[in-house]
Design a protein around this nucleic acid. Sequence first.
DNA 1: CCTATATTTGGAATCGATTCCAAATTTGAA
DNA 2: TTCAAATTTGGAATCGATTCCAAATATAGG
Lengths: 332, 332
Amino acid sequence: MARATVQEVAKTAGVSVGTVSRVLNGSPAVSESSKEKVTTAIRQLNYRPLASARDLRRDRTMRILALAKNLNSPVISEVFRGVGDAAALSGYVSLIAPTSGDLEREQQLVDMLRNSSVDGLILFSPTMSDDDVETLAEQFSVVQVCEIADSEAAFGVSIDDRQAAFDITRHLIETGYQRLAMIGNRAARSGRLREAGFRQAAAEADLSPDQMLFVEGDFDFHAGRRLTRKLLETGPLPDAVFCGSDTVAAGCVREITDAGLRVPDDIAVAGFDDSVQAEMCIPELTTIRQPAYDMGQVAFESLLERMTVAGAHRRGRLFLPHELVVRGSTKA
Amino acid sequence: MARATVQEVAKTAGVSVGTVSRVLNGSPAVSESSKEKVTTAIRQLNYRPLASARDLRRDRTMRILALAKNLNSPVISEVFRGVGDAAALSGYVSLIAPTSGDLEREQQLVDMLRNSSVDGLILFSPTMSDDDVETLAEQFSVVQVCEIADSEAAFGVSIDDRQAAFDITRHLIETGYQRLAMIGNRAARSGRLREAGFRQAAAEADLSPDQMLFVEGDFDFHAGRRLTRKLLETGPLPDAVFCGSDTVAAGCVREITDAGLRVPDDIAVAGFDDSVQAEMCIPELTTIRQPAYDMGQVAFESLLERMTVAGAHRRGRLFLPHELVVRGSTKA
DNA sequence: CCTATATTTGGAATCGATTCCAAATTTGAA
DNA sequence: TTCAAATTTGGAATCGATTCCAAATATAGG
C-alpha cells in the first residue's frame, strides 16, 4: 500500500485539497460535515502528511537539534531532558546527536541547521572554534549551553563556572585546608574557567604557588585515578584536592583510598556537578550542584525566542545559580 | 540576506538549474568549465540546498532516528555510538531522542518515521506494546536493539539475556554459593529474560525456592540500595546477590558494606553490563559484558538492509556474544 | 567537409502540502 | 422573498531541488 496524498484524501472524501488541508490544520472555516468526511477518509487511507512537503511550504520544521561530544555524562543527559521537555511544551521536537569530538561529523550535523532540516541548534561542547560558532549564530538560531567561551561575544546559558569553582575552593580554605591541588581539564571551556576560579580563591587566600598543585587531563574515572597517582607520587602531598568533575573525583577518592590514605582525614576531595556519582563515592562527595534540567529549559526558551522573534538580540550570557553541597569527602 | 535557491545560483553562474543540480550531485555529465562556474556561484551566494525540497523530490532523507527512554545509561550511549558510527559510514545521519517513558512523546517521535522525517527507526526500550511495534515494523523500517520481547515475532539485535543471566548465575553456583538472591526489574523486557535465566540456573542446580530470593524494582543506584536493604531485613541472608545491572549492583555493594558486612566474604555481588560502574565499585564487580558498541553497529546494518533492500525479511533475532567478567565482588 | 556518435545543456514537469483568491453557498435581517 | 453579509469551498499557484527528454554542441571517423 503506497503512501496516500492530500489529493487522494480529497477525492475519497469528495472535497477539495484545500478543505483537507484546512481540516489537517484545524482551520475554523470548515463545516462539520466536511470535517467529518475528511476525518473518515484520513483514517480509512491511513493518511499522514508528508513532512518534507509541509516543511517546504511552511518554511519551518518545528524541530531543533542539540549537539554534544558524548551523551554519557549525567549533566548532559539532564540538560537535554530539560531541553526536550521545554521543547515539547512549545510543540517542538528536540533531537540529539553526539559528535564524538569529530569536527567533520559536527559540520555535517550543523549543516542540518544550514539546510533547514531543523529550525534551531543547541550546542553543548562544540568542537568548532569560537569564531565559527559566532559566525553561525549571526545567521541562524543557535544557543550554547554549559560550555561557553569567555569571550567578548559569548552568549548562552550556564552556571558561573569561575564563581562556582571559587566558592568551593574558598570553602576548602575556610575549612582549614592549606595545601590545595586541582585536577582540571583545559580542553574544556568550562574547565579553564574552573581553573581560574580555583586560582583566584587560592590567590586571595595568599597561598603560595607550591601550595597550589595543578594537574590536568580528561574528565573520566580512569583519568581521575591516573592524575591522582601523579599527584601522590610527585611533590609534597596536598591536604585537599578539588576535581573538575564528580567522575574525576570518584577516581581520585578511589586512588587515595587504594594508596592506604583516608578521605577526608588525610586528604579531602571535592567534586563538581553533583551527579549520581557524588553519592556513590565513599565517603560521599562535597561538590557543586548544577541546575542542569533548568539550564536545558532556559536554553530552549532562549532558542525559541531567537527562532520566532525577528530581531531578537543574541548577545549575553545567562547565569543560573549553582549551589555548594557539603558532604563527607571534606571535613565540616 | 535571504536564502539562495538553485534558480539564483543558475542565473549567477549563467547556466540552467539542471546543470546546477548536476554539479551538486556529482553527475559526470558536466563540463569542467560549467562545474567551475557553478562552484564559484555557490560559494559566492553561500548556497545550501534546502533539505525539505530535496527530500520531497528524492523521497528519502538519509536520516534515521534512535529512541530510548533515557540517555544516561552507559549501555545506551555506547549502543548509539555504534549506531552513529555505522550510519556515518553509509552516509546517514543518526538522531537520538529520549521518550522519558511517555507514550505520547514516543508516538510523536515515531510519527517522524510515519511522515518520512526519517527513513528508519531504532528502538531501544519502547513504551508502546509489542503488538504496536510489530504493526509499525510491517510498514516501516524498524529495528529493535537490546530490549526485545521474547515473542513469536521478535526481531532485533541483542545479547541472549536469558543465557547471560544463566551463565553468571551458574558461575555463582559453581563458585560455591548456595543461597542466591536476585534483584531484577520486571518492567523491562530484558529484565524478565534475566530473571528467567537466573531461575533456570538455580532450578538446574536443585536449589529450593527459599534458596532463591527475588526482589524487583527500578534499575538505578538508589533502588539498588533500597532493594538490598529489603533483602537484608527480611528473610535469611543470601550468600550471593545477582543484580540485573551494574548500577543496581553498585547500590547493593554499598548497602551491604554500610551494614557492616563484607563483599564478597559475607555476601558476593554480581552485576550486569560491565559499565564503568563495575570498575568504580569496591571491590570491582563480577559482571556480564555486553558488546554494546557492536550491537549498535549491527543494528544499523540491519536497519540499512530494511531501508534499501525491497523485500528484506524482517523476522529473526540477532544474538551477539556476551562475556562473563570475573572480578573481586565474587570469590574466584 | 560531412555524417554519425558522444557529450553537454536547457527547461518543463514533478514531488505533496499549503495558501490565497475568487466563487459558491448559507445565514440573517428586513 | 430579497439582498447583503458571513461562511464555506474549489482549485491554481507556490515552495525549491531533481530528473527526464529533447535540443544543442562537440568529437571522431571516413
